[in-house]
Amino acid sequence: MRLIFFSFMAFLALTVTILLPSCSEGNNIDGSIPTVDLTGIQACVRPVVTKEIELKTDSPNPIGDITKLICLDSCFFIMDRLNQTVWKFNESGHLLGKLRKVGATLGEYVDLYDMDLLPDGDLYLMDLSMRKIIRYDSDSFNLVSEIKIPGTALAFSAVDSTKFVFNNAGDKDGININLGIFKTSANNIKPCISAKQKDEYLALGANTTHLWRSGNEIIYYDRFTPDFYLLTADSVLPYFSLLTEKIPTESQVENMIKATRGHDFSSAGMDGETIIDILYAYKNSVGLLFGLNTTPQQHIFQRFDNGKTYLLGTSDSPTVVGMMRGAVGVFGDSFVTVKLPSNDDENPSLILYSLDEI
């Protein structure tokens, strides 16, 4: 099958918009979406480094791990789950502040598990153990509010200060939801995309990185289908689907659930040939970059102007271990990856690169 992929603007013009309020009523998203044929990759393309940012901290304790990175204006916010810390740097790599409030009282967290940031400057952290979202001012890191989650969630994105999107979530009765909407005015999580079976997340593995932010837009990936969706402030758009003939059947999923039940969040029973696991998905004005959890890992770039699919070559520029890990965010029109330090007492660096020289 030849590649069928519309340019981004044409796709938005042709696609029926699904409003988030309709999702909050529990409707699943339907409709055909463009398909990316992974067998139709045109050629290899190598990243062009635009900048390397050495991160500088003011203490002998370096960044433990860049679990998540989100950019706001000229600043980088880094979630370091290993150290339960959020670091804030400017575009020169100088430390502007850090947040570490571990505890069980108001404004503190027991298990920092996910982070999001709105363009208005609000920083949101999710405490997995306490089932709450904590809102801070991103300049002062002062507490603004706490929001109790009426159920469970493994990842989230903030649509605005009163509306949140969860994936791998469960409502207060424990019903699994692939993608759900939570409004602070309600006391439940309404499904946008429901799981086909109870405990489906066990069969698919509880990967927490199915929501990725590129500026004001959020990309969501539903591994069971395997479909991508584009979330904006007021809509959920079917984005595209990966072409595969190996989508697991209902009976296969049921068998995988049985294999994993009793040890939650295990990858046991997963069939790599029937589940396409996406490591990340980010977009800029030129195209979409996403990573496949294959052996070896593959990093795919899809241009919007010509609809062609390219495989990233990682043998030379940038010659960093981070390219094998893939992108961790978008800064302006550059993708961001991590250059790992050579010593444990050093900080990682950020590599900004472009893919538009094709």
Results as ranks from 00 to 15, higher is better:
N83V: 06
S342G: 12
S140W: 06
C44M: 10
F89R: 02
K258R: 13
Y113T: 08
F141S: 00
A186G: 05
L230S: 07
I53F: 10
G287M: 02
G269Y: 09
I276L: 14
I4W: 11
I53K: 11
D120E: 09
I147H: 15
F228C: 05
G107D: 07
I70G: 02
D271T: 07
K56S: 11
L95G: 06
Q297T: 10
Y201V: 11
L106Q: 15
F164K: 04
S24G: 05
T309S: 13
I351E: 04
A281P: 03
F141A: 00
Y124L: 06
I78W: 05
P318H: 05
V45R: 11
L117W: 08
S74T: 08
T17N: 08
F331G: 01
V330D: 04
V330H: 06
E146C: 05
T209V: 04
I18K: 12
R213F: 00
S354I: 06
S214D: 04
E52A: 08
I181P: 01
I181Y: 06
R223V: 09
D316F: 10
N90Y: 10
A233H: 13
N188R: 12
V49D: 05
A43Q: 11
Y280C: 00
T152S: 14
R325G: 08
S145L: 01
G174D: 12
D160R: 03
S214K: 02
F224C: 11
A281K: 01
S32R: 14
L3K: 13
I70Q: 12
R135C: 09
M79C: 07
I66G: 01
K308P: 00
D116K: 04
S251C: 00
T260P: 01
D271K: 15
Y136T: 03
E200Y: 08
L72R: 15
M323R: 09
R213P: 01
L112T: 01
L143G: 03
M270Q: 15
D222M: 09
K98D: 03
F156L: 02
S334K: 10
L211Y: 03
S267P: 05
S138Q: 01
L204R: 02
T294F: 10
G322I: 02
S342R: 14
D37C: 06
Y353E: 05
D171V: 06
V144L: 14
A233S: 15
Y310E: 01
P318L: 07
D80V: 05
T244D: 00
Y280G: 02
R303H: 08
A259D: 13
S266G: 15
F331E: 06
G326H: 04
S354L: 09
F8R: 15
T15G: 10
G107I: 06
M115S: 02
L292E: 10
D30Y: 12
Y201N: 15
A206Y: 13
L312S: 01
W87S: 03
F265K: 14
L14D: 10
T85F: 04
Q197K: 15
T105E: 15
K101S: 13
S214M: 00
K283E: 09
S92Q: 14
D58L: 12
L154D: 11
N293V: 00
L128H: 13
N343V: 03
A158R: 08
D277A: 14
I351S: 01
D139Q: 14
F304T: 04
D277E: 12
